[in-house]
């Protein structure tokens, strides 16, 4: 028996918005410790890694490990039926081929049950090596989304360079060049407005704008985003999900020919 209750169903709605552009389907691995999802996009350029800890749910029970293969477009249709303030409960029997999403209004006067068929998906787990990153940058997530959106107008790629002085995002193409520099903030009223840089060594890497824009769909999940970079390894873009977990995106850099 698997049962997970979330008073704020909006969290799962936002998670789905944050992954459905990159992935058509994915396996939700449910265990005692929580719900995990790890999947690459079709082109194997990016990877989504989602972790929702069991202690972050309002109620959580998972008697046996369960892998739920889910079509994300179908799940998205169901999640759109939930009001933001509805209470969500996901339920599945052991070895089930169905998962039930139950939405209850706050006053419990309306109860909705949606059953969704599960899929058998080939599991391809990637071993992600532990990496000490040369640069770890934290910045407001809306700022990151804005920068990526703005630079996408100039070209397909964005160069992210990090030095002690700050971070520079650059793009260039037919219409010209664009550079956006962010310095580390010295004092801000709210932590979520801060730009912080932890740098061991300067790094400069090139990434496809298309994927960065897809990652930015996670912006509603967290006021801050963390970028971790080292030379010649994938970028990690991490959004915390309240007290329940995180979503991490990995993106392979573009390589100079």
């Amino acid at each position: 028996m698997f049962e997970a209750r979330l008073v704020q169903s909006s969290i799962l709605k936002k998670v789905l918005e944050a992954i459905k552009e990159l992935l058509n389907e994915a396996t939700f691995d449910c265990s005692d410790s929580g719900i995990q999802l790890q999947a690459m996009d079709n082109s194997h350029v990016s990877l989504v890694s989602l972790n929702l800890r069991s202690d972050g749910f309002d109620k959580y029970r998972c008697d046996r490990n369960l892998s739920m293969g889910i079509n994300l477009a179908s799940m998205s249709k169901i999640m759109k039926c939930a009001g933001n303030d509805d209470v969500l409960t996901m339920k599945a029997q052991d070895n089930a081929d169905l998962v039930t999403f139950m939405f209850e209004s706050q006053n419990q006067e309306k109860v909705m049950d949606y059953e969704m068929k599960l899929m058998n998906l080939d599991q391809e787990h990637l071993g992600i090596p532990e990496t000490d990153y040369s640069c770890v940058i934290k910045l407001p997530s809306q700022e990151f989304a804005r920068i990526v959106r703005d630079l996408s107008q100039f070209g397909e790629s964005v160069v992210i360079s990090c030095t002690k002085e700050g971070i520079k995002f650059s793009a260039g193409g037919d219409i010209g060049n664009a550079n956006i520099k962010l310095a580390q903030t010295s004092n801000v009223d709210k932590d979520e407005d801060a730009v912080t840089i932890e740098m061991q060594e300067p790094v400069s890497l090139t990434f496809a704008c298309r994927y960065l824009n897809s990652f930015a769909k996670a912006t509603p999940l967290s006021p801050q985003v963390q970028l971790s970079m080292s030379a010649d390894v994938p970028l990690v873009v991490e959004y915390k999900i309240g007290d329940i977990g995180h979503i991490r995106y990995y993106l392979a850099p573009k390589i100079e020919d």
């Binding site: 690459m40 082109s43 194997h44 350029v45 990016s46 990877l47 391809e124 787990h125 990637l126 071993g127 992600i128 090596p129 790629s157 090139t206 496809a208 390894v233 994938p234 990995y250 392979a252 850099p253 573009k254 390589i255 100079e256 020919d257």
Partner: peptide, 14 residues
């Protein structure tokens, strides 16, 4: 010019 790298060359598939 640049070419897009793939994650397979960085991470091991198990």
């Amino acid at each position: 010019t640049t070419t897009q790298g793939r994650l397979d060359s960085f991470f091991k598939i198990s």
